[in-house]
Every structure is written in C-alpha cells, then in structure tokens.
C-alpha cells in the first residue's frame, strides 16, 4: 500500500499520549500501519497514510485516539454540503 499516497496534512487523527496505556490495539486494527508500538506507548509513525476509517478510535479502550470517521465519497460529501452536516444521507 506504500505505492498509494493521498493528500498530506489533512487527517483529523489525534493521539493523546498521556491517556495511552500501550495496549497496541490501534496498531493491530489499522489497515495502513499508521501506528507503531514503542514501549511503553504507541506512536504515530505514518500520519499521512491515515484514511480516517476510525478503526483505531473505536478500538481504543481508553479513548486516547480521536478521528472524524467518514465516507470518502464525492456524492456523499456533496449531499452533506447541500443538506447540512447533520442530514441523514443515503449514499454509495
């Protein structure tokens, strides 16, 4: 997957290292090896590979990770622009 790089400095991914307990679950679930366990805590080693799928955040037992997960699909985003961020959108 290293052949495919998308835009840099866009991801909403944030890691609160104070909260991290070093369980390594984020490293396991990330499909783009964004995280690496560096004992005793995890760190973000490839931030721009993040596709904001949200797997790390939903599997972090101490909520040390936040990310705005979403659908990276153009028609979804257009509908969100038109109908507002809270609208329920049928898409993809």
């Amino acid at each position: 997957m290293k052949d495919f790089r998308y835009l840099e400095d866009v991801t909403t991914l944030k890691l609160d290292e104070d909260k991290c307990i070093g369980c390594g679950m984020c490293e396991v679930v990330c499909p783009h090896t964004v995280f690496k366990m560096e004992n005793p805590k995890v760190s973000i080693v490839d931030r721009d590979a993040c596709m904001e799928c949200g797997a790390c955040a939903s599997n972090c037992p101490v909520e040390a990770i936040t990310v705005d997960p979403g659908v990276g699909c153009a028609s979804y985003i257009i509908q969100k622009w038109i109908k507002g961020p809270d609208a329920i959108i049928e898409c993809c």
């Binding site: 998308y6 835009l7 991801t11 990276g72 153009a74 028609s75």
Partner: peptide
C-alpha cells in the same frame, strides 16, 4: 474529472478530509 473524483469513494486509502479538500478545488 468528476468521474475520477467519484472513484475516491471506492478506494481503500483516501481519507474523507482529503476528498473534501480536493473537491473544494475540483468542483
């Protein structure tokens, strides 16, 4: 250009924030 932009939704590596950013330029 529009059809290619739509393909972002089918790839396993494009972040929604990135797609939104390029749509603001592309559309």
């Amino acid at each position: 250009s529009y059809a290619a932009m739509n393909f972002t939704g089918a790839t396993p590596y494009t972040s929604p924030s990135g797609v939104e950013k390029e749509m603001r330029q592309g559309i």
